[in-house]
């Protein structure tokens, strides 16, 4: 089964278990997870809107796209909705969506007063339920092909880190060199904001939906002595947020999920004490001590964590 259909099965199972009839999502990462469509990347978070719907019982999907380029074959042209600027058309499409009128529970990935009014009109019997947590829970552990995609994205980000470390000049010039190298290596879309600050360099990219990234300090310690080394070693199945706090160095640190961008769990000095790590999670692990900063993308395995961003620098 193709990767996007495997992912969709996970999402549908999780939504069904949560008692959701219809899913209405606007966030690109959720849409990518379910549909596998390659849609235009734009920077920043968009307002909430009904870009994709999924009927949990039948699996029927409608996707906002004027063309079929980049859309997997299992979503036919007659299940694509062209771009519209007209609120009445959005209403008509949702109202005509089979299963919407009778839905008891409509799951959404965000909420606004305007969209809540629209959904209540097209699904008058339904409770509007936030299901971003349900979807992100399903996305938390990665399939083998997802791990491969993340590893490949890490290799692209490593090219940027290497270029920025090697390039002479101001921080801005080195940052430009990193961004250029990343585009040549296969991604013109950043995940986090790229960072070049003196010796500290951090790049990440989105490549074919998946994020890879790493951070280094020029002239820093060897891998086993980097600020995040003990944190990485502590990323084993069953480790709790509390365990990770105890492994953390003095200073700033963050462990968070990494997949189709930034994902839960978020574990830092303030949040995530009761989170529990599981095998097949992929995490971004970063820490700073004194002048040194390091970050890697790490796969939680049954034994020692595997560093997916292992390509030097």
């Amino acid at each position: 089964m193709s990767l996007h259909l495997q992912r969709r099965t996970r999402a549908v199972d999780a939504l069904a278990a949560a008692g959701i009839d219809m899913l209405v999502v606007g966030r690109q990462d959720h849409i990518n997870y379910i549909t596998g469509a390659h849609q235009l990347w734009t920077a920043g978070a968009r307002p909430f809107g009904p870009v994709c719907t999924l009927n949990v019982a039948t699996g029927e999907i409608f996707l906002l796209s004027t063309w079929d380029e980049g859309v997997p074959d299992d979503i036919d042209l007659d299940h694509l909705h062209g771009i519209t600027w007209n609120g009445a058309i959005i209403y008509q499409r949702l109202a005509a969506n089979p299963g919407m009128a009778a839905a008891q529970r409509v799951g959404v990935d965000a909420w606004s007063p305007g969209m809540a009014g629209l959904l209540s009109a097209v699904a008058p019997k339904a409770e509007i339920v936030p299901v971003d947590d349900v979807l992100l829970r399903a996305r938390r552990t990665k399939l083998p092909s997802e791990v491969d995609a993340i590893r490949a994205a890490c290799a692209v980000a490593a090219e940027a880190v290497e270029a920025a470390l090697a390039h002479p000049g101001t921080d801005a010039q080195r940052l430009a060199a990193g961004v250029e190298a990343m585009a040549l290596a296969g991604s013109s879309t950043p995940a986090a904001e790229p960072r070049v600050h003196g010796p500290i360099v951090d790049f990440s990219c989105i490549r074919f939906h998946y994020e890879g990234g790493l951070g280094r300090t020029a002239g820093g310690a060897p891998p086993e002595a980097r600020p995040h080394a003990a944190l990485i070693a502590a990323c084993v199945p069953g480790a709790t947020g509390q365990d990770l706090r105890q492994a953390a160095p003095e200073g700033d640190w963050l462990i968070r999920g990494s997949g189709m961008g930034f994902e839960p769990p978020v574990i830092n000095p303030r949040y995530g004490k009761s989170e529990i790590l599981e095998e097949h999670m992929v995490l971004s692990v970063s820490a700073s001590t004194g002048e040194e900063y390091a970050r890697d993308t790490v796969l939680v395995t049954e034994s020692t964590p595997e560093i997916l961003s292992s390509e030097e620098p």
């Binding site: 966030r27 690109q28 990462d29 990347w41 734009t42 920077a43 920043g44 978070a45 968009r46 879309t189 950043p190 995940a191 986090a192 904001e193 989105i206 994020e211 189709m260 961008g261 930034f262 994902e263």
Partner: peptide, 9 residues
């Protein structure tokens, strides 16, 4: 606004 991926922003 930061010009990064929606999930990060």
């Amino acid at each position: 606004p930061i010009a990064a991926d929606a999930t990060h922003v």
